[in-house]
Design a protein around this nucleic acid. Structure first.
Lengths: 244, 244
DNA sequence: ATCGGGGCTTGATACTTGTCAAGTTCCGCG
DNA sequence: CGCGGAACTTGACAAGTATCAAGCCCCGAT
């Protein structure tokens, strides 16, 4: 029954969307009723590539949930721009700004055609005030995000470009079940910016990893001997383990 | 009455400590009873300078509150080390690790002789589960911390050494009520590490700021014309406003 | 199939930042 | 009071990284 009501009220939303959002750690533990109240005002929209969903400095109107496609979080200053992170389905972004009712610190744009659920920030804050399970889920999510940025900051401050790239490749390698070959999840130019270097520099960094068994063909990366690469990368869970 | 009980149970703690902790945003909104339960197992300890209070990778046993002195949060990798942030009274640190029951991502050491309150992590998590006001205060605190690290990451990725230093000095200038002279809050070597550069480089960066009216004598900094310096620094609330 | 554009690579070069070594200053301690 | 050590500064040099320019390659549009 709830499903029918849900779909009636949320133009464009499929019941699979509903289930996927519900399954997120952020929403998993709360009761059906508050979840219904939270998502009542939400709606789904499909955006073409390269659409700026939010702009840093602006006020937080919606909590965003990526259902399909991918979204880039980036920031600019003084004519420069850098990729802060990539968001893949299914996950939320800019939760902190929404909860604090503060301006966005980062902008967001679609990379490819993407389906995004928009939940009014006011509703998020209202349910947050009322529902204790949701409030605790928000804590878990924020703590996770916080630790993620801390790791990223350590990566930036303690490693040089080649080391950052080597560790990134090892993380992706593991993410893909340790298979020797995998696809990069984003364009190289974006990856370069994410890792804090120029595209030219990353191209050279990739070459520098050849002696360690890394070969690249387009988006396809092959890691011949992960241990060899790890000898250079020296990964540590305190920076590189996303679960930690 | 509560005060007397409190002091009886917490060796070394003064009633002023009690009030200062209670006044923190993290503890301000919760009821007297849960606060009492939360701090019941806590105690105060005074540490000499350069004592390592926590080590990254270790398990979170206590939530720490700095009452006097100052504490440096730092991280290491592969023989390198960097200062992540400084904690001044009265504030807590490593809340995220405590709540998540996860390993510390950063180490902490006293810089000067410091009084620190230690609250068992188990108690923090227990009260967090039970007390909804506290849970929401934790959200506010974590969101604040998260946004702080994001700003710091933007600072690192978007600005070069001189720009980071210029903006840091402007922030301190503002913090001190806009007076032309103020004292650096930490040693230069630590500040250099915090700002992501070597001490040698910071020495040169300070010289590079002389044409913009910055003069330095020991810990004493004079900013002759903040607007002039801001012309170079181009501060933005999205990186430099701690409240934002 | 051809054209055009954007992403990627490469080389040359310049700028930024780090390293090393030496010297100075400052401060605490005997 | 003077000694010792650490912090800081300075210069010379090396390493890391960015910029600029050119060419290649892939892919989508005509």
């Amino acid at each position: 029954m709830i499903l029918v009501k849900f779909r009636d009220r949320h133009p464009g939303m499929r019941s699979t969307d509903f289930h996927e959002i519900r399954a997120l750690p952020l929403f998993r533990e709360m009761g059906a009723e508050p979840f219904e109240a939270l998502t009542r005002g939400g709606y789904v929209q499909t955006f073409p590539p390269q659409v700026e969903l939010i702009t840093e400095g602006e006020h937080s109107d919606f909590l965003h949930v990526v259902i399909e496609g991918s979204v880039e979080l980036f920031a600019g200053w003084n004519g420069r721009e850098t990729t802060m992170s990539m968001v893949y389905p299914v996950s939320t972004f800019i939760l902190a700004a929404t909860i604090k009712d503060a301006p966005y610190l980062m902008s967001a744009r679609t990379v490819e055609r993407s389906r995004v659920v928009l939940i009014p920030s006011e509703d998020v804050r209202r349910i947050f005030e009322v529902d204790n399970d949701f409030a605790r889920a928000v804590v878990a999510e924020l703590a996770q995000c916080y630790r993620g940025v801390v790791k990223s900051a350590k990566d930036m401050k303690l490693r040089n470009a080649v080391e950052r790239l080597a560790n990134y490749l090892l993380r992706q390698h593991l993410r893909n079940g340790g298979r020797p070959e995998f696809e990069l999840r984003m364009e190289k130019r974006r990856l370069a910016s994410f890792l804090g270097m120029t595209p030219e520099n990353m191209s050279r960094a990739l070459k520098a990893l050849q002696p360690y068994g890394v070969t690249v063909d387009g988006q396809r990366v092959r890691i011949a001997d992960a241990d060899d690469l790890a000898g250079l990368a020296k990964p540590t869970p305190l920076i590189d383990d996303p679960e930690h």
